[in-house]
Design a protein around this nucleic acid. Structure first.
Lengths: 195, 195
DNA sequence: TACGTACTTGACATATTTGACATTATAGTC
DNA sequence: GACTATAATGTCAAATATGTCAAGTACGTA
């Protein structure tokens, strides 16, 4: 488990060290304190969530984490097709063919985006969306629903908290664009939510 | 392992060895000293107390969730029934009603035992077993298959790596006993591993 | 637009803590 | 006993926490 110091966060955010410490004091950024004077250490996951929440671009060293996409679909041809498109576009992908793999992967792979098929056997897509959106530890994970279901179902997904939807069949370019938008607009969404 | 060296503490805290020794000198961390030059040894309990006191996340190896059991079953009455029996027996339980929740829970709830229904919609129990058993990070997780399927299916589960099986319907006492056995085996195995 | 208020951030100064390095010593292994 | 990995110690440079004050920023109001 990698941790960052307050100074590193300050550098990455382009901000004064004093300010980072104030963020920690106010609870904007989670940290734990060492004995001694109480120097701060920030866990990687908390750092990633923080950066995503405020739309701060990740520094080069951590850029990989914003390229990670988890593809959740039980139909292998479809999952592989989505994966191929994303890989060509330069993303690092992982596929989950059932709910168990998906649940595991959001914790171990630490993806920034999850594409989710709504109608998987034994798995209620809406519940998955609600579950993810209710966990602060997953606050940076964007959900892109990809489904062949009619529009009203897609709207339900949006209402449940999905960040965007895409109906099957889809154009490659549209998928790529939607993912790119999700990855870039953390700030806007954060603002809307906080208002 | 009953004691840790200063170097191990340094590694787990993500901090320099020199710093750990200073913590010991200042009394933040309790230790005893060997003869010779006075090399430090930290008792496991003191280490755990230290980590808890300062909110430093514990490494996997030292998390003791041996009382935690994850109940995986899509039939709520059955899941709740299993959960009730285990709770009465003094275990801390969590239920997962689908694969996604189960996959998530093995990483966040960190159970010592998982009871697994083999026939859940959209989830191949055997695959789950193989998946769990193939991940070294989950080596401590025991799987108790609880199923109404015929014996040959249960044997398949054992062959796939399940630690024990229980056919539905079952006697409360048998469940409790099997869990207790799994946990006590785990303890022994843990010791053997660390030596 | 201009102004006032509340809040946030940066800049210092200062006391501490931590990391890096070199050196010496101990512990574990064979 | 010899060898290798690990640990302790001293020292210095770098990083960090904290208090305080001035400057910057957002925002509502006239």
């Amino acid at each position: 488990m990698r941790t960052l110091t307050s100074g590193e966060v300050a550098k990455y955010c382009g901000v004064n060290l004093r300010t980072v410490i104030r963020w920690i004091e106010k609870g904007h950024l989670k940290s734990f304190k060492l004995p001694g004077r109480g120097n701060n250490r920030i866990q990687l996951q908390d750092f990633l969530n923080f950066m995503a929440e405020y739309g701060i671009p990740l520094p080069e060293e951590y850029r990989d984490y914003s390229r990670r996409i988890l593809v959740v679909d039980d139909e292998r041809p479809m999952a592989n097709s989505i994966q191929r498109v994303l890989r060509v576009a330069g993303y690092e992908t992982k596929t989950a063919y059932d709910g168990f793999q998906a649940g595991d992967a959001i914790r171990t792979f630490l993806p920034a985006v999850m594409t989710l098929d709504l109608s998987m056997p034994g798995l209620d897509g809406l519940k998955v969306i609600e579950y993810v959106k209710s966990d602060p530890a997953l606050s940076r994970l964007k959900i892109l629903v990809i489904s062949a279901l009619p529009e009203n179902k897609l709207n339900e997904a949006l209402a449940a908290g999905a960040d965007d939807v895409l109906s099957k069949p889809f154009e490659k370019d549209v998928l790529i664009t939607k993912v790119a938008v999700l990855l870039s607009n953390g700030a806007q969404r954060g603002r809307l939510e906080s208002v």
